[in-house]
């Protein structure tokens, strides 16, 4: 894979996007396996479906700007 094809991508004000198969350990050490071709890992801590992103970061951004 060339260097311009990262398989972990940080999205501005958003989740960490993973390409391919990964095993993700959450804060408590529980391990979750990716099931999709791409997956989004929560970075804001507010997702109800952690470790996966559920779009909740957008609500935070909205509160911040208003």
């Amino acid at each position: 894979m060339s260097v311009d094809e990262p398989d972990v991508i940080m999205c501005p004000d958003g989740p960490m996007l993973l390409r391919g198969h990964h095993r993700v350990a959450d804060e408590s050490g529980e391990v979750f396996e990716t099931e999709r071709p791409f997956s989004a890992v929560c970075r804001c801590g507010k997702s109800a479906t952690r470790p996966w992103c559920d779009g909740s970061h957008k609500l935070l951004r909205r509160t911040k700007t208003t």
Binding site: I9, P15, L17, F38, C53, D54, G55
Partner: peptide, 15 residues
């Protein structure tokens, strides 16, 4: 769609 589209959104916008 809560979970899938949180991924698809980033894919569609950025990649």
């Amino acid at each position: 769609h809560v979970e899938a589209d949180a991924v698809h959104e980033q894919l569609a916008l950025r990649l």
